[in-house]
Amino acid sequence: MSLAIKAEHISFSYAKDGPRTLDDVSFEIKEGEYVALIGHNGSGKSTLARILAGLISELDPNASLTVFGMEYDKEHSAEIHSKIGLVFQNPDNQFVGATVRDDIAFGLENRAIDPSLMDAIILESAASVGMEEYLDQAPENLSGGQKQRVALAGVLALRPSLLILDEATSMLDPKGKREILALVRKMRKENPSLTVLSITHDVEEAVESDRVLVLAGGKLILEGKGEEVFSHRELLEENHLESPFVHELSLALREEGVDVEPTLSEEGLLEELCR
């Protein structure tokens, strides 16, 4: 399977000679993979997302970033851009249009898509996030979760190959959170080649992923399958991150002498216990 992202020696600082926001970060993400990126506040997660999406282009000279096999250069950046969809944290700050319809149209307009085709695309992507009845609503009349679903629809309409969610659920209530996660799951099912990089504070969200990257102080400190990453409890704690509850529980049970393998999912733990 080919690589969606190949990042090598990514370093970056906002101010010249300022502190390094990202410090020699290297990783790979395969096409179709669902990767969670976790890390404490200010660890550089959003900065990394901006770099991957090409919103920041001044990289360190020995850094190399390849997205879908293309280098980020003048020739390819437009094409790379068109393959990446971004959803940010604050639902209000990414709602550009006056209504849901106009907001979904915004991305299509930017891609210079024929206006006569737009209505069909808008309806289809709104329907896929369950917002087809709100097409003419203004953002003020929508809940945060609904606005976030519209943001997802706006991104979906552009048919991205890589979806980057930068704490897309962190301002939502548990219900809104679950809905967004379920939508992402559905999107991946419908399009298995869709690569997802989900940036999150919420370790519970990381459980869903194929792989977890942990960023601390601009450095990539851990990388691997969820069970593996969360077994480094001291390292995580040092960096103000905790393990998911189920994982903690399975470890605690093990300490008490119950014979279970550390696991991340409730079902997994149940199975282990019934064994």
Binding site: S82, Q94, V96, G107, N110
Partner: peptide, 9 residues
């Protein structure tokens, strides 16, 4: 907003 707009092309 600027990031979101640029991100959407």
């Amino acid at each position: 907003l600027a990031d979101a707009m640029e991100g959407r092309g």
